[in-house]
Amino acid sequence: MGIEGPSGSVTKGRRRVSEVDPVGAGDGPGTVETPGSVVEVRTSASASLIPTIRAVASDLAARADFDLDAISDLRMAVDEACATLVDVAAPGSSLRCTFDVREELIRVHAEVDTGDAATPVSTDTFGWRVLQTLADEVELEANGSGTVGIRLHKRADAAPR
């Protein structure tokens, strides 16, 4: 799948202040992502860049030692959230996706600018229903201020279905 258009940026930084992981994280080179890390991915709001974002989600979950189903679920949930947002994004705007890697939990916040002619995000779709099933918690943020966001949590152990 080709990746085109203006390139996105991936930035990673330590969480502020006392969010440092109390347990022994990082028991070897390249093993487990330190809990308390924040990873932010910004791309143009284009469906062609979603594969990149979901790959980041999948990689973070694997490094945070999520079980394989939970990794799969997070990848799909992030894909779904991003696809939903790209649909309503203003032309030429960007998609901002933040991953907050905690102990046994990843919090994701994705957001786009909708411009003036805001198309409302409907939660009456198959996609939204799937998103609710995949994520442990999901919330739509539409406050009419020209941006729409989706916030979701995924725990490291997938709930048995």
């Binding site: 979901r54 779904e80 696809a83 996609g127 799937v130």
Partner: peptide, 9 residues
């Protein structure tokens, strides 16, 4: 390698 809800639909 990946199946999204759009694919499921």
């Amino acid at each position: 390698g990946f199946l999204a809800s759009s694919g499921l639909a």
